[in-house]
Design a binder for these strands. Structure first.
Length: 114
DNA sequence: TTGCTGACCGACG
DNA sequence: CCGTCGGCCAGCA
């Protein structure tokens, strides 16, 4: 394989950032995309997280929500209530598929990893 | 190869 | 306020 892994793929980057999300914190697709330098590719972040299930399974994708703090991708976790329970398990309050005090638990890789 | 879709975001009317 | 459109990149038929 020419000894060249080159994990610079968009997917790999998303995985790393997602795994860096601390306990009890959440982030948004756009935040990750912006951190990667591709704000417009926010959709790809979700796509990458979708593939994260096949990748290792240790990716806390449940800590990633949309800009409104809404659990848009809850369906892809294999359960609609799974994501909410996981978040509540970390001390994050979720109601009506929306995170309470979203800005308080919001974790921005751009600022935290800066 | 082309075209469509997708866990988004922001702008426009 | 709500609906619609464009942009971005990767995977699949």
């Amino acid at each position: 394989m020419t000894a060249n892994k080159h994990d610079d793929s968009f997917f790999s980057k998303v995985y790393e950032v997602t795994q860096l999300i601390p306990f009890g914190r959440v982030t948004s697709y756009g935040a990750i995309a912006a951190y990667l330098g591709t704000r417009g590719s926010a959709r790809m972040v979700g796509w990458a997280l979708n593939a994260s299930h096949f990748n290792s399974g240790a990716i806390p994708a449940h800590r990633v929500v949309n800009r409104n703090g809404v659990l848009t991708g809850k369906h892809h976790f294999g359960g609609q209530k799974v994501m909410q329970q996981l978040l509540e398990s970390e001390g994050i309050k979720v109601e009506n598929d929306q995170i309470i005090d979203f800005e308080k638990v919001f974790w921005d890789p751009m600022k935290e990893l800066l």
